[in-house]
Nucleic acid binder design. Structure first.
Lengths: 165, 165
DNA sequence: CAAAAATATTTTATGCTTGAAATAAAATCC
DNA sequence: GGATTTTATTTCAAGCATAAAATATTTTTG
């Protein structure tokens, strides 16, 4: 079979293909899986909780810091731009899920904290989120999950060392 | 926690932890790696080619279809909304990288095709893109890449079967 | 202390993304 | 053949994301 099939559909790797092509295919699969999962999370958050992944992410970060986070700390933890967080926190504040409280002694800064309502709402969302992931990744058993996590940790470390922040 | 949550340091799994927590950790690592790679691709496309990942994706799709694609086919291939593609194609057309050509016999539709300029530009971008991926995933050898690709294909199939499109 | 530098945050301009509504042009059906 | 439905695409409103500029407030420093 000399058919050259370079379509999007899975093909066997040509025997003499350069390694870079194999890695490119690996990346494309990786990205595809990641986007599928993310898309479903977005859909469900919207359908079941009328919220979004970015808002969920902000609440997740705040839920780990009882004392609250400054805007700049929040954008640091989430690794997104400052201006970005401003808008998301604005919306969460309108919904009553977070509050901005002044930092005594520094009138520039503000702490963002979950409200009681926000904390309760996030608990519900997080439980659902975990169940969705559990369903989607149900094929991964304990041993495989652990080994993939190790492999991904190594990759992330490697990427970090190569200057990808 | 999907996104950007980075509980920076890897924690050992508690012995009695429910499986869902292990899968959640797996997802968080997966997402983190994916976002790091994507962020670097975006940065480099911007710095070296003054373009974006969405534009690159559109050109990549068109480069596989010499004859061109209708707008709806394009959004189907890329799995994004119709309205989304309209704007990206508008910008690529302004840059002279693509053209909309009328479909004879159907005045509603238009074929989008790479121009000669667009084809040449994409060739340069694609070569650089492949090299960036090759560098970032350099730790993956042929055997490991192949096995991970198989695993991801299985995951994607499973997700598809579960209704994640 | 006053000028300069650094820090914390918001604003602005631009682009990506979606779902839903609007337009327009076939295709189908009575 | 004219009304209805379907198909192809764009427009719209809202939200997310970034980099760069603007504000405001501390901190440093000469």
């Amino acid at each position: 079979m000399s058919a050259r099939q370079d379509r999007a559909v899975a093909a066997e790797a040509p025997v003499d293909e350069p390694m870079s092509k194999a890695r490119l295919r690996l990346w494309l699969r990786f990205l595809k899986a990641s986007r599928m999962i993310e898309a479903r999370l977005r859909d469900r958050l919207r359908a079941e909780f009328a919220t979004t992944l970015p808002r969920f992410d902000v609440m997740a970060a705040l839920s780990r810091y009882e004392a609250g986070l400054k805007m700049s700390e929040l954008s640091g933890v989430l690794r997104v731009s400052n201006g970005n967080v401003t808008g998301i926190v604005d919306r969460l504040a309108e919904e009553g899920h977070v509050v901005r409280v002044p930092v005594p002694g520094d009138r520039r800064a503000a702490l963002v904290r979950l409200t009681a309502k926000g904390r309760a709402e996030f608990a519900r969302q997080a439980a659902a989120h975990e169940a969705w992931i559990d369903e989607m990744l149900g094929d991964f058993g304990a041993a495989e999950a652990a080994s993939v996590i190790r492999r991904l940790d190594a990759l992330v470390a490697e990427l970090g060392a190569k200057g990808v922040s």
